[in-house]
Design a binder for these strands. Structure first.
Length: 254
DNA sequence: TCGGCTACCACATTTGAAAAGT
DNA sequence: AACTTTTCAAATGTGGTAGCCG
């Protein structure tokens, strides 16, 4: 699903009270020590130093980026848990919320509209260095209203909460002029909805596209992306903030 | 003037407590 | 009495849109 969105340049809506991501990040983790305890956390980092604008067809740089708000990370609520626990099922971050409210008190991740971002997964063992992973196809443009109608249509077609806007189900709402055909119609692909919502049956499919390690060459050829591993490559300020957060969490669980 | 942002809307899904069943 | 299943209303998650704002 990420790959489909990535082709159209993914957009994520920011709201004052916080908006979930769709698609959200779900990782299949392998290679952990089954008995070691780990904390899993996500944050979102700017991809460059530009502010962007949508010219009607594509995104283009249109100014200097606002300074990124540091210190916000989403710690998976099951943290800390053993490697065995994390590895026996995909790890979902569907509760993570994005906001454009600088004064946010809810702990949501603060982003700027019309900027370009990349989510990062941090795997933090109790007594070793943090490992950070990113997936190129999960990059997105933060917006307060969708710019690209193709993205809007993809969201409507794939997100169960947006079913009310699908063709035929809309009641008493004006339809947008020149609205493109639904994604399912355009693609005419029986596989296009296999990853719909949080279906546990689709975990194997996700494992294919979002595996953290041991990728085959066939995977990479087939538009899956290998996770970029950024061992200890966090900028000092960011890694310090994250470590402080995790320290607090550790103390809470003790 | 205009592009971006916000509040509010209708509809769908999720949640969880109460009711009903075993 | 204890536990499981069903029901259903409230809460929450969606994109659309009108109007506000800088």
């Amino acid at each position: 699903m990420w790959n489909e969105f990535y082709r159209c340049s993914t957009e994520m809506v920011l709201t004052k009270q916080g908006r979930r991501m769709f698609p959200y990040c779900r990782y299949w983790v392998s290679g952990m020590d089954p008995y070691q305890k780990y904390i899993l956390a996500m944050d979102i980092t700017p991809l460059d130093t530009h502010k962007y604008k949508w010219n009607g067809k594509w995104w283009e740089p249109g100014g200097k980026a606002e300074p990124h708000v540091l210190g916000r990370a989403f710690i998976h609520p099951e943290s800390p848990s053993t490697g065995q626990y994390w590895m026996h099922q995909p790890v979902s971050f569907y509760k993570l919320k994005l906001t454009n409210n600088i004064l946010d008190q809810e702990g949501h991740i603060i982003l700027h509209s019309m900027h370009r971002y990349l989510p990062r997964l941090h795997v933090i063992p109790a007594d070793k260095a943090t490992e950070t992973f990113t997936f190129p196809q999960t990059e997105f443009f933060a917006v307060t209203a969708y710019q690209n109608v193709q993205i809007t249509q993809l969201k409507i077609d794939c997100n169960p909460f947006a079913k009310g806007f699908r063709e035929g189900t809309m009641v008493g709402r004006p339809s947008k002029e020149g609205k493109p055909k639904s994604f399912a119609q355009v693609k005419d692909s029986p596989d296009s909805k296999k990853l719909e919502h949080d279906d546990p049956e689709s975990t194997e499919k996700l494992k294919e596209s979002l595996s953290l390690s041991e990728h085959s060459d066939a995977d990479t050829e087939n538009e899956s992306f290998i996770a970029k591993q950024e061992l200890k490559s966090l900028p000092n300020s960011q890694s310090t903030v994250l470590q402080n957060l995790l320290l607090k969490l550790n103390q809470l669980h003790r």
